[in-house]
Amino acid sequence: MDLRVCHLYPDLLNLYGDRGNVLVLERRCRDRGIDVSVTRARVGDALDARTQDLIFLGGGEDRQQGVAVVDLRRRAADLGAAAASGTVILAVCGSYQLLGHVYHPAEGPALEGVHLLDLETRHPGRGARRLIGNIAIECSLPGVGALVGFENHGGVTDLGAGATPLGRVRVGYGNNGEDKTEGAMQGTIFGTYLHGPLLPKNPSFADALIGLALRRRFGEVRLAPLDDDVESAARRAALARIGASYPTDRWRGRGAASS
């Protein structure tokens, strides 16, 4: 069994330690005896997205995203077809915004996205606060539990009917700082503001993505459990640091009371 991972724009969208996610996907497969190939595709490179099981995109500065989106539009149909065939796409931070319909910047013309996720993002204006800080969400995927990370975005995102939130915000801002939604899922496409190294401290989410990506060519695969002591300790420490209670079932109680 093998997993074909593509890191799209690793030199362009790599703002917050995004490559950590690829390291985790590789390691968690290899530790289970699953071979992994990682293709690094840059602007202009030939890539048949439909040959890939999992495509990852990170975040970039405004200028870099401007360069990336031009190339991304050229690949939109191919990426859409791949996702329809079961390829998992994970986009964090800036690239999450680009997968939507449109980005309205603080000033200047709107930036058209690639319409793979039913969402829109707008920047509320030069003086608006950035949404920065530690964040914890309760993931909507069954069995995944809490996701912990860091967000840093100026744009606020609203989901359309075609996308469902990746999770509910417990601590932090999420999509827009208002409706408590965070991220988006649409078929096998996932987007989130939990930027940079999202997967290292959230191994259950990493495994959910790996399982889903393998399903395309190998059907339902049972992933062997791994020694996650270091991951669990880092998760617990991070959750404690941001003042979220743990484990997640206690969270649900608290969330229900406040919503």
Partner: peptide, 15 residues
Amino acid sequence: NDLTADGTDVSWLWD
């Protein structure tokens, strides 16, 4: 550390 003077986001460790 992740205090203000360090930067509160430790994502950079992965870079």
